[in-house]
Amino acid sequence: MVSTVQNTDVKQKDADRAVVVAVSSGAVFGSGADDDDEDVYGEGVAFPLLQALQRVNGRLLEENPAELLLFDVVLITTDSRQQQQSSRIMSRTRHYGLEVSRFCFSSEEDFVESLLKLNVQLFLSTDGNEALQASQKGVLSALLDQQIASCPSEQLRVMFCGDAIIRPDTGSTPASRQAAQTFSAQLGKMRQSFGMCDSPLSIVLVTSHGGRESCSAALLTLRSRGLSVDEAYCLAGAPRGPILSLLRPHFLLSDGFSSLEE
């Protein structure tokens, strides 16, 4: 059974132009053992991410009050215990001032279909199995972890995996690759609204393998999609961990499904 509730406290985004981002409730709210424990609804790892998305929306509207290309956040819940406390989840979301447009309560079996029906362009979760299932059905997905808890909330930092861009994973579907290209183009249009300095959106490219030629190829591919990057790093086989710790991206994107731990 699937139930979607609109948040009447938030101005709804244009369905034809908005970039729909679904975030699992497990990433937004902490999980405690006691149903009555307030910590169950405390700040989860996705809090800085949601605040950064709101920051981008706010700045886009400052630049153009009629702007329709905005992030539209959906909170999706598959945990049966949290579904029984749906009103409490919604009230805590409002309490924290999170700009969530809709709440989707779905079973584990139906959640991917829910993402497709909601026209979700990016799904973010702390559950690797959920993210992988969504990616296999053509929904661009990324896995969140504790690393993002230290990310800045005033700037959205998106990292692209250059290796996956120039050599798409044979396991990814054509639909997921197309979803990645579409999202890249939308992100590029948003980034063009801001100058080089004081932008609320930062795009980073990291190529783990190969030399400058590989990095250049990835840059050209992203530019062909309408996306210019703020920073590019060619690691030439060096570990990716140190640069991730330095740059602190909110999530990493390839042409399908990605994790910061890859």
Rank of each mutant, 00 (worst) to 15 (best):
Phe183Leu: 14
Leu70Ile: 03
Gly32Pro: 05
Val158Asn: 01
Arg177Trp: 01
Gln85Ile: 02
Pro152Asn: 10
Leu61Ile: 01
Ser199Met: 07
Phe111Pro: 05
Leu187Phe: 07
Asp9Ala: 13
Asp79Gly: 00
Ser106Ala: 15
Arg240Asp: 07
Leu132Val: 03
Met1Ser: 12
Ser86Asn: 05
Glu130Met: 11
Val45Lys: 01
Leu116Ile: 13
Asp72His: 07
His250Asp: 04
Leu244Met: 07
Lys117Glu: 08
Pro200Lys: 09
Pro242Thr: 12
Met90Ile: 02
Thr207Arg: 00
Ala238Leu: 12
Gln84His: 09
Lys117Gly: 03
Glu63Asn: 08
Phe103Ile: 00
Ala52Asp: 03
Ser31Ala: 15
Ala142Gly: 14
Arg212Val: 07
Ala236Glu: 12
Gln51Ala: 07
Leu201Val: 12
Arg94Thr: 05
Phe160Leu: 13
Gln147Val: 02
Val10Gln: 13
Gly226Cys: 10
Cys234Asn: 14
Leu244Pro: 03
Leu201Glu: 06
Leu260Gln: 08
Glu38Ala: 15
Asp35Phe: 02
Met190Ser: 04
Glu113Pro: 02
Val120Tyr: 02
Gly30Trp: 08
Gln178Glu: 11
Leu247Cys: 02
Asp230Gln: 04
Gly138Cys: 05
Gln6Tyr: 11
Val206Tyr: 00
Leu60Gln: 06
Thr126Ser: 12
Val158Cys: 00
Asp127Met: 01
Asp255Met: 15
Val100Met: 07
Lys11Trp: 08
Arg212Asn: 10
Leu156Lys: 06
Val158Phe: 01
Leu246His: 10
Thr207Phe: 03
Gln85Val: 02
Thr207Asp: 08
Ser224Gln: 04
Gln192Trp: 01
Gly58Arg: 13
Asn129Val: 04
Cys215Ser: 11
Ser224Glu: 00
Val139Ile: 11
Arg81Pro: 00
Ser258Tyr: 01
Val23Ser: 00
Glu43Asp: 10
